[in-house]
Structure formats: C-alpha cells, structure tokens
Design a protein around this nucleic acid. Structure first.
Lengths: 198, 198
DNA sequence: ACAGCTATTTATAAAAG
DNA sequence: TCTTTTATAAATAGCTG
C-alpha cells in the first residue's frame, strides 16, 4: 500500500528502514487498539527497536490502573464484598464458557491449547478466590490480635489497680476472687503460624 | 477499509464481532510479522479472545525472551506493572512448558478424558494445599478467639474485684487508674466474617 | 462457522516541500 | 531531518453461498 509493492525482507537502507519502522509501528499499534476495542479482547504488544528502544501497547493498561485502585480500597469492607461478588461472577462466567465449549457438537475442534488455556483461566479464578479468602482470614486474625493486645493492656491495668487496693486494705474484707489466671496465656506462636500460611 | 466506515467501539452483534475478530486478528498478526521482518525488530504479540483462546506472534527470539527483556526494561517502573508483566511472562512460560510436554510424539493418545483426569488430579493437589492452609488459619483464628474469651472473663472478674474493693474503702486512697476502656471493643463481626470465608 | 467477493476505507512508499 | 502530499497497495465490512 504505497507507490509500489514491497518485498518481504529486511530493508537494507538504514534510513528508509527507520522511516518504515516508525510508520508501521504506529500503524500496528493503532490496529491493535482497534482490535481490542472492536472485539473486546485483551491484547499485549511489545516492540523492541534494533537499538533497544521499547514500544508497547496493552489493552489491559486501563485494567492495571483499575486493579491498582482496587488494591488501594482493598481494606474497606464494602469494597471487599463487592470484590467477592465480582470474583464469583467471573468464576461463574468461566464455568459457563467451559460448559458451552463442551456442549458444542464439534468437541473435536477444541485443541489441546484451548483446553490448556481454559484450565489456566479457571485456575486463575481459583487463585483469586483463594487469595481473597486468605486475605479475609488474615484480616480476621489481625483484628483478633489487635483485640488481644487491648485486652492484655486492660488486664494489666486492672491488675495494678487491684494490687494497689489490696495494699491499702487493713480489715479482712472477703473478696469475690478465687483465683487469678492472668498469666494463663502462653507466648503466642502466632508469628510462626502465620509464616506457615503463605 | 470496507463497505462502510466502522465506529470505534465494541461491536455489539456477537456474530459479526466474531467475524471481525477473526479477520482483524490475522491481519494484525500479519502486520506484526511484516514489521519484524522489514525492520528487523523484535515483536511479541499476545491476544486473548473473550472465550479464553490464546493467539500469539513473536519474532524469532521467542515470546519468553522478549517478555523477559521487556520485564528487565521496566525494572524501574511501578510495582503494579511489574507484577502484571511478571504474571504475563510466567503465564506464557508455563504455557510453553505445557506445550512442549504435549508436543511429544504420542500426543494423539492423550484423550480429553485423560486431560480431564489430569486436571482433576492437579486440582485435588491444589485443594489439599488450600485446605491445609485454610485449616491452619482457622485454627489460628480459633485460638485467638479462645484467648479473647478468656481475657474477657478475666477482665470481668477483675472488674468485679475492683468494684468490691472500692465499695469497702473509706479513706480516699489515690488509685493508679486513669481511665477504663473495658467497653472499648465493639461487637464482634467475627461470625459474619467467617461465614464469608467458605 | 468458514470461504470468497467486491466496494470502500486505510495504510503507507515514495515524492515533494 | 521532518512534515505533508499523493498514488497505490492492502485490509476489510458487508454480502453471498
């Protein structure tokens, strides 16, 4: 598509090779963008010039930013449950894809590659769910650890209060306390346990 | 470049979207190949259809190497994009591993059933690991909950003790206590959170 | 879903400024 | 060297089978 047809081999003239590279590169990226938009598919395109310069296009670029924002708001509950729902939705969608693929008359057309890819997607979905679950549990543990810390502090306080009072007593008032289990709790192995979790 | 100009937005009609995808995909890959040949540059192109099918093109050096190079090129970039790249790279790498495994002479003997069974086995292994992890976390949470319960009981006891003592006091002994945060902790949403976990 | 066929639109090689 | 223009090659949207 130019003044004349071009041979499909390396352009020897350095200058026109550079010009062609510049033009065709932008054309290729444009086409990649169009394809991703028109057909709603994910595309990653990476080009290294002979001098090591990098050019890229990625339909997931917007997605990356969304995921980043998603991570920022990750700790908030409302967002969290939304995320769970989203994961569930996409998971279900994937299952439907698998079903429809397998229910088609011409199963033979499913190449091994296709199956591998589907399996991978499923596994990624699983991974997401797993990661989400793990995070929720971690948060749960964190919360409980926080509470434990607070309760310990409170206990110490009360203990000191109790000791101070006892010291100032002179008559033998009977007290309700039968035993004290302040030191009941051993050292936490929490750190150890958590290290096992990932 | 067709009978009419096309709007740059997702093609809503599923059928024609599929047709366009097929045509433009091959066109894009062709253009990528041409650019890599004419200008002697490295190109990696990955396309995921909405159905999870993978299409790719890469110039001589191979997708993995190019993506590896890409990753190095971006070492100084943000964490997020690094993660995405890494995911893409390892994804592709894994794919190649599986492919090479499957490209052995007697691939034809691998039936769908075999693949399904293989997948099942893999997933069971994953499940086991996952279950183990979950169990560890659950135990961790249980332990912490137990501790919380004990600490609460202890607190109550101490509080009662304190109250009893205060009642039997007649002189204004100064006490060490400045504040009390017994009710600091809100109601647990632990039950709710846990229900989300499975 | 796929293959071939134009009428058109796009991309771009080469020329011009 | 860069940008713009132009002539032409390519790609492809909508058809038809």
């Amino acid at each position: 598509m130019g003044r004349r047809k071009v041979q499909m081999k390396r352009i020897e003239d350095k200058s026109s090779r550079q010009v062609t590279f510049s033009k065709r590169r932008s054309g290729l990226i444009k086409k990649a963008r169009e394809l991703s938009v028109l057909c709603d598919v994910e595309i990653a395109l990476v080009i290294f010039s002979s001098r090591g310069r990098l050019y890229e296009f990625s339909s997931a670029d917007g997605l990356t930013k969304i995921l980043e924002r998603y991570r920022c708001h990750y700790e908030q509950e409302s967002e969290a449950s939304k995320d769970v729902n989203e994961a569930l939705r996409s998971h279900t969608e994937l299952l439907h894809i698998v079903q429809s693929q397998l229910e088609e008359p011409n199963v033979e057309q499913l190449s091994l590659m296709d199956l591998v890819n589907l399996e991978k997607q499923l596994d990624m979905a699983l991974s997401e769910t797993r990661a989400r679950k793990t995070q929720l549990m971690m948060e749960s543990i964190m919360t409980l650890q926080e509470k434990e810390k607070l309760l310990r502090a409170e206990n110490e306080l009360l203990e000191r209060e109790s000791a101070a009072m006892e010291k100032n007593e002179d008559e033998g008032n009977e007290v309700v306390i039968g035993f004290s289990n302040h030191q009941y709790l051993g050292n936490l192995r929490q750190q150890q346990t958590l290290s096992l979790l990932q």
